[in-house]
Amino acid sequence: MNESKETPGLFAAAGAILRKDLRLELRTMETLTTAAIFTVATFVVFHFAFDRYEMSGDIAAGVFWVTVLFAAVLAINRLLSNERAQGGYEALLLAPIDRNAILFAKFAFLFVTLTLLEIFALLAFALLLLGPALSTEMLPLAPVLLLANIGIAAIGTLISALATDTNARELLVPLMSLPLLTPLLIGAARASTPLMSLVPHTEHLDRWLGLMALYDSVFALLAFAVFEYVIED
């Protein structure tokens, strides 16, 4: 009866879940549109709060990363609760897959979402507030974004799994996220400051990338170690 069937491998299952999530997101655009609108709205608010037409250096880096961080919190909030809202969460738990496939898929989905969001946010920021024009000198932002996204995705997946079964999810997600993401914010904002200054340059870039890489590896391993406990039962 089951001759042709085997349980899918970890990555096959994760791939199937990720494709399903991307398809759902493309169809509804719920996370990306809300996060994008939020990003622009926040830039507008910062414009009035600082009464500036242009920003550069540490202020620019701070405004950019705080905006991204809050937008990320929105995405984290929806990450696993969306699975419930859509109605399929228990089907995932019933399936003969390694539970870590859910972790990998959600991690990858959040990573992709954040990357798209940051590309949009950076363009919008350059258009609205950033003093120096976008140039190839800012290319070292790429590894900063990459390492920030890995960390946010690992921590975000854990937090969304922890919060999704509580009855105060919307409150708990930001409260848990902000302190846990602070070291990443430190690294990302400090690394971006010279890159966003009027004459973009790099300074201590390796130090901040190193900090973020260390943070990422610890929390990626931790997420892998504890995720099953969060979603069992």
């Binding site: 069937k5 349980t7 899918p8 398809r23 859509q86 109605g87 089907a91 995932l92």
Partner: peptide, 29 residues
Amino acid sequence: GLIGHEALVYRDLTARENLAFTARLYGEP
């Protein structure tokens, strides 16, 4: 196979997509 009160399908996917996803999760080649 569990058939309960909840259908356990994704509201914004089509019936075909939902079943294809299930088939993949259960290791259908």
